[in-house]
Design a protein around this nucleic acid. Sequence first.
DNA 1: TTGTAAGCGTTATCAG
DNA 2: CTGATAACGCTTACAA
Lengths: 343, 343
Amino acid sequence: MAIRLKELAQHLGLSQTTVSRALNGYPEVSMRTRSRVAEAAAHYDYHPNSNAQNLAKGRSGSIGIVFQPERKMLLEPLFADYLAGVAETTALHDLAITLSTPSSDREEEAYRRAAAALQVDGLLLSSPKVEDKRLRILAETNIPFILHGRTVASAPYAFLDIDNEGAFFAATKLLIDLGHRRIALLNAEIDYTFACHREAGFRRAVGGVSDPTMKAWSLEGQMTDEYGYRNALACLQAPRRPTAFVCASTLMVPGVMRAAREFGLQIGRDLALIAHDDRISQLRPDYFDPPLSTTQSSIRDAGRRVAEMLIARIGGAAIEDLQEIWTPELVVRGSTPPPLQKD
Amino acid sequence: MAIRLKELAQHLGLSQTTVSRALNGYPEVSMRTRSRVAEAAAHYDYHPNSNAQNLAKGRSGSIGIVFQPERKMLLEPLFADYLAGVAETTALHDLAITLSTPSSDREEEAYRRAAAALQVDGLLLSSPKVEDKRLRILAETNIPFILHGRTVASAPYAFLDIDNEGAFFAATKLLIDLGHRRIALLNAEIDYTFACHREAGFRRAVGGVSDPTMKAWSLEGQMTDEYGYRNALACLQAPRRPTAFVCASTLMVPGVMRAAREFGLQIGRDLALIAHDDRISQLRPDYFDPPLSTTQSSIRDAGRRVAEMLIARIGGAAIEDLQEIWTPELVVRGSTPPPLQKD
DNA sequence: TTGTAAGCGTTATCAG
DNA sequence: CTGATAACGCTTACAA
């Protein structure tokens, strides 16, 4: 049986109140008492009961994530890392996660219920579509939430996003500056806001080229090996094929490489490729051959941060102070040579 | 502000006790009272405060899952569906999930801590390796847990597994009965128990054939498109190549199909293929061309069940009553023709 | 069948 | 700086 605050206090010859205060870092406790308490807590391996703590503090001690695997499916390698990041933060703050998995037709209800039942102190939303009804639903309630990504919404909301437009502009610009004039964007499904932003960045870069030979492709599909292969293949079959690819995810790259190989082409020699790298575990861009040039931003860090932001929001921080846009870093490795002479 | 039990009781002119009992289905409440209470609860949209409930009942209200994305937990698409299943059950029982993500070197500590701090009422383990130290650690504590899968362990433990040996025996036997004599197993990484069992089933089926021309391959690798491709390719390059494949996961099949295509071969015509299907969302075997023959068992159902079992275990059910082995169903579709004459 | 009252393990309020 | 004491919202003996 684990030790309780009461017993710990008895051992110390102090009141529960004082011990609690010492443990929670309240300023009015003397240094001496504080260290005695800390020592005893460690010695008896005391851990506060979270339920009691949460009850007393009037919060639930859990944050909610609504997810539907049938909808997200092959973004799942990303989801797992994102979730890992979230879990790191929640563990630090002794929060639990309440996952709900409504069937697609009950999604609205799930959000309403979460809000009504107050089973959670706040919600984390991800993978927003350009038009995302979830925001409207949550705006009606006043449950704190953070959106990982952005969307169109009338009311302001708290979010963490990366500068997808800028990143894909930079990536495309890199290729253009190297001399490429036939560039293909292998994008994610375009109803996701991030894909839409990426398309915009790509278009802006391409649009800035006055060269009349400039040609651009833009294909969309799931961020998987398979769609990387398919869409790259589709481009490469064109009579004047692209000399460079901009890829929505490193997850697609093996597929793109295979497609290239089928045409006797090699990334890093005959073709340039730059991909967005979410820094997921076990898919390191420098392990590819050639090492991939990327725009990088850790989705796990984002998960960590988004959970911190939610905690802040729950604590009363203003929406305006909880709107972050991270700038992915452009990392040039071996996969982006200039175009071949003959091309 | 949400309504509380006290207020609900006041509205009804009853004591908290009675209302609580009615809501929790205690037998001693009169029918009339019970229905009045149910009605009022619905009317006022009453939801009990889980922290108070858990505190009073002396449980934490959360179950733990320790996962490390860097270790490829399960392959993520599978993990997501498994997690969805777990979440369905926990939602039903008003339980939260506490994910912890220790760095690989701290794994042991994570389990010990979970046990010590009693932050969770029980733990769910998955993807056991043949030798899995986690079981030993948990055996020392007495925290309830369920293993999804099996492993070698001295003490008995509660688990849910599928009959991988039997399923892969049946799948291989199907191919043999069709006349195939050169069969390749594209297995998952062999240090996982399930992969080991599958290998055993495959071997048993192959070993039962007296025909001296019988030839078997057994390759291992991640259950991905990419490794499906690689390993299939490796087999097909052999002088007397396999006429049939047994695949650890439908996730690998697109890769296998591509490899076949590169040799001008087509699954369902020139080659037979049967794969294990975890019934994950959006990867339906009947959407392949040809529709895949499979051994099927829903990993989402397993997640659901494993959580139920954990709840039972927490409730005091005996380990012996919590050991289930499901038999995957063999479903023959179009991908398993008999071998070609010339082969 | 219903009610009273004492927990469950914390934190918050108010004195001292 | 420290300590009683009252919440927090529910369950559960024990009574009636």
